[in-house]
């Protein structure tokens, strides 16, 4: 699979369709983000698999925002899984990236990873290699719903009370791009207090994930205290879906309900 992707990236460079490719590279046993500007560098190219599939994913779409802001005229290729593509679709809609300047090179996640992520769509539309993998329906949300109101309150209060307010969930999130973050507003969330006010901090973030969260799970992987954030945001996504018929990142041409001003009010 990797070799086919490398060939595809080389073609993109040769056909001058991109000036640089944002992907992952393994150097000295360490996998990290890498901006390829020369096809010769593609040795060491990585899909982010080390101990198990997809265990070394990075927020590449977020890195691309910083790059594209400085180089708005350049065209970039980017390595995408299903979740990365959903993030990019959302970032296009929110005008954080220009779709015409981004070429996605997609590959599917293996079934094993799809199941671990409970990912409804473990492949991107922009597949250049591999087959579409069967989506998985989440069971984790249901498990928590079955705890009943009291059980749920206890469950989340305990999880939130572990928070050391590292802001890792926000920092790693591919769809967190606000210039001003309410979670860093000293009047709402006083600095120097750990854990942050329970449950306001996490519910503010959860509310802000409505219509945004593309269910990549990087937040949960970045959480040093193991708060099941992904499950929380899956529920938020379910609510948005039932109220607005919208799942962030899935339909490229469907406008986000949070991005519509609505009818002009009558004078």
């Amino acid at each position: 699979m990797k070799e086919t992707i490398i060939e595809k990236v080389k073609d993109l460079f040769e056909d001058s369709r991109i000036e640089a490719f944002l992907g992952l590279k393994e150097e000295n046993g360490q996998i990290g983000p890498y901006l390829f500007t020369d096809p010769k560098d593609l040795e060491g190219f990585s899909l982010g698999d080390k101990e198990w599939p997809g265990d070394k994913r990075y927020p590449l779409s977020k890195i691309l925002i910083a790059l594209a802001q400085k180089y708005p005229e350049n065209r970039f290729g980017i390595l995408v899984r299903g979740c990365d593509e959903r993030a990019l679709n959302e970032l296009f809609k929110w005008n954080q990236l220009n779709e015409e300047h981004v070429v996605m090179v997609g590959f599917p996640c293996p079934q094993e990873l799809a199941e671990a992520c409970e990912c409804p769509k473990p492949y991107p539309e922009s597949l250049v290699v591999g087959e579409k993998v069967k989506g998985i329906k989440s069971k984790k949300v249901e498990v928590i719903l079955n705890m009943g109101m009291e059980g749920r309150l206890k469950y989340w209060t305990e999880r939130f009370s572990r928070c050391i307010k590292c802001y890792g969930c926000r920092n790693v999130c591919p769809v967190c791009f606000c210039n001003e973050c309410e979670l860093a507003n000293d009047d709402l969330i006083p600095s120097g207090e750990i854990p942050p006010e329970n449950p306001i901090f996490h519910l503010v973030r959860a509310a802000h994930m409505a219509g945004r969260c593309i269910d990549c799970g990087l937040c949960e992987e970045a959480c040093p205290v193991g708060i099941p954030l992904r499950t929380l945001y899956k529920k938020v996504a379910d609510i948005v879906d039932s109220e607005f018929g919208y799942r962030p990142g899935y339909q490229k041409d469907q406008k986000s309900p949070f991005n519509i001003l609505g009818e002009r009010p009558e004078d």
Partner: peptide
């Protein structure tokens, strides 16, 4: 994410 110490996590 490859660091055995923090495994993709950090404090503030």
């Amino acid at each position: 994410k490859t660091s055995p110490v923090n495994q993709g996590r950090l404090c503030i």
